[in-house]
Write a protein that binds this DNA or RNA. Structure first.
Length: 217
DNA sequence: CTCCCGATAT
DNA sequence: ATATCAGGAG
């Protein structure tokens, strides 16, 4: 089965199961989403949302983050893990927005990835959710699922992004990313994927390999 | 490539 | 006990 057929069937399933999928990081503006996304590295969205509830009250603007005390900010975000790296990133991000972008979140990939703590994944979250731009978000779930199904043979996130851009309709790429992430949390999990109850196991290269391995004549 | 790191599920 | 969670920097 070719990739385009797989993507078509996958999207059909995703639309039926996860209609109107939205960003699961709680936010009210681009600055808040950027903050939450930086915190979301190797951490569940649910935990980020717990932390940001208070964080957004304490640091409502980029300037507030720019002026934040390092030790205090570490304490504020500690439950999300990697807190020293993330605190440094958030302060650097605040300073960058104030000094280079008039306190606003920029809307291009080129500018976004120059911000401390922001790589292509985080940049695509912002472009897709705040600017309505085509954006395939290659996070741990998208990476795992694209590889399992056989939509890519690459393991490098940027190459996976390039592979997916060719086969996902641009106007739907942002929502597609959300849907795949929900699918990854619920069914196609990293540790023990629920292949038996997976509605799209028929298009999955990894599932086919598992079946073949278990079936020994 | 390694390091960063707390919380949760398995 | 260990793998994993909306990764990025050096």
């Amino acid at each position: 089965m070719d990739k385009k057929t797989k993507v078509l069937r996958l999207m059909e399933f995703l639309d039926s199961r996860y209609a109107n999928a939205e960003c699961s990081l709680r936010h009210e503006n681009p600055f808040q989403l950027l903050t939450a996304t930086i915190l979301s590295a190797q951490c569940t969205d649910a935990r980020v949302n717990i932390v940001t509830e208070e964080l957004f009250r304490k640091y409502p603007t980029p300037k507030d983050l720019a002026d934040a005390d390092m030790e205090e900010l570490c304490g504020d975000i500690k439950p999300t893990g990697f807190f020293r790296n993330k605190a440094k990133s958030l302060i650097g991000m605040g300073k960058k927005l104030v000094s280079n972008h008039g306190g606003e979140v920029p809307g291009t990939m080129e500018e976004l990835i120059k911000i401390p703590g922001v790589g292509r994944k985080t940049a695509n979250v912002i472009l897709g959710n705040c600017f309505g731009r085509p954006a395939v978000v290659v996070d741990t779930h998208v990476k795992r699922i694209a590889f399992r199904i056989g939509l890519t043979g690459n393991t490098d996130p940027e190459k996976i992004e390039q592979d997916l851009i060719k086969i996902i309709p641009p106007e739907r790429s942002a929502e597609w990313s959300h849907q795949v992430i929900l699918f990854g949390r619920e069914i196609c999990t990293a540790r023990a994927p629920k292949c038996g109850e997976c509605p799209v196991n028929g298009i999955c290269a990894d599932y086919a390999a598992r079946i073949k391995k278990h079936f020994k004549p």
